[in-house]
Nucleic acid binder design. Structure first.
Lengths: 254, 254
DNA sequence: TAGTGGTCTAGACCACATA
DNA sequence: ATGTGGTCTAGACCACTAT
């Protein structure tokens, strides 16, 4: 009947997740060892082990036998369509990534943006617009709106050097992501920017990302249909490939 | 001894996964309880518990306290872009799904198909082609090739009633899936079948699925850009939503 | 009442890293 | 030599479901 007691391994997990979310623990920081948790909280080692093991399975931390447990890097939000940093992707293919910034300014959210970010119309947002190139060939227009309150220093960044995606991840780990993918004919302007052919459609990805429990960024990503495709490969959990994925980092691409 | 001493909980997991894959255990069948595994294999209960708990986390089984452990239904292969049964999707939106079969025949694999299915050119495959409609409006052309050896009774099925996807899942659980998504202008024929506008692009999904460790099916799915989009929402594991997904899965209520 | 899963303990042995 | 994670055991108590 009454509120169930929350299991101790779960309390431990939430404690550590909280410290990661708040920034108290940063990626690659050391997390208390099993024995330290035993001493600090009075649980048995099996209980501490379960907490840390599940955090590892869920991607929050990385464990190395004989060494310790460390906060995971946030390539994370894996699955679905990975939250891909396009710069990393391009370089992974052995090409050179560059980008040119078209727009980087403060503005008031119109109703569309306000709805997407779950804020009041008129609230402060930053608008970033840039073109990403792979070895000099345009492959993506990134048209992004960021909650100003979440990332107050956006205007001081040089997004030709660090992508908005990478910058936002560095501020705070992304917790949640939503993707919508569709095919669309480009506007004249987009077609020109992406150097697209006459009858060429766009692959458009709309992505919203969450941090601190609320949407913080909303982006339309336009890609030339002839030079871009999304891929995803799923293997069931508990497979060899699962381990491989964890070790190799992220990114799909086969 | 042995190579690297495979942990006992892992041996138990693979034993049970094997029985599920082979069909020895069918969806909703009862899996041995923790105590039965203890008696049968001599492990401690904590070890049996870990095996069954992980199988539950990975979606192979569903556990109900006080009742037992049961083989899960195969809606599974979740994540990435879910292996969607389009009929279920349409009905989930409250609409009526129907489909008309355009093609259903045996043929020899050409080199493209052979490559995709990792077989020799000329090997036996089935070619299935159908149009899926949502409340009478065409939303997908499914152009699929199936390894004949994997599904010998394809020609006897009525795919206007049971979708190929559902039929293939019923033969054997799908283990692995690969998706490629792109934007493309349709051919004249596809445009007509999907009743598309003049300048309307297609959202094309190419999907390969694996069973018994090898690719068994390869499909191109064409959607009208104006009436179809893919969406995916990611929430980190260990969240409320994760639990919700699990609960809403097999059992009817929530 | 007997069986099930959910959790927890206080030990234990091991392979491996680091110093 | 010490600490770390990886595994395992043989008990235990609990809430729940079924009979």
């Amino acid at each position: 009947m009454s509120a169930q007691a929350i299991p101790r391994y779960r309390q431990l997990k939430e404690l550590i997740i909280g410290q990661i979310s708040s920034g108290e623990l940063q990626p690659s920081d050391r997390v208390p060892s099993e024995n330290e948790l035993v001493d600090a909280t009075g649980v048995s080692r099996m209980t501490a082990n379960r907490a840390l093991r599940e955090l590892n399975d869920e991607g929050y931390v990385e464990r190395v036998a004989g060494v310790g447990t460390f906060v995971a890097d946030f390539k994370a939000v894996s699955h679905v369509l990975e939250v891909r940093n396009i710069a990393d992707e391009v370089e992974l293919r052995g090409h050179v990534h560059s980008s040119s910034v078209l727009q980087q300014k403060r503005m008031s959210a119109d109703s569309n943006i306000a709805t997407a970010l779950d804020i009041e119309a008129g609230a402060d947002v930053f608008h970033i617009k840039l073109i990403h190139l792979e070895s000099g060939i345009p492959i993506q227009i990134e048209d992004r709106f960021v909650l100003a309150e979440f990332a107050p220093h956006v205007l001081e960044q040089d997004f030709a050097v660090v992508t908005p995606s990478a910058y936002l991840s560095s501020i705070s780990p992304l917790q949640e992501a939503e993707h919508i993918v569709r095919a669309e004919m480009p506007t004249e302007k987009i077609s020109q920017h992406l150097e697209m052919g006459a009858q060429e459609p766009c692959l458009v990805v709309t992505r919203r990302t969450w941090a601190h429990g609320r949407p913080v960024s909303f982006a339309n990503l336009y890609h030339p249909g002839s030079r871009f495709e999304l891929s995803g490969h799923y293997v069931p959990p508990g497979t060899e490939a699962q381990v491989k994925r964890r070790l190799s980092g992220a990114t799909t691409n086969d």
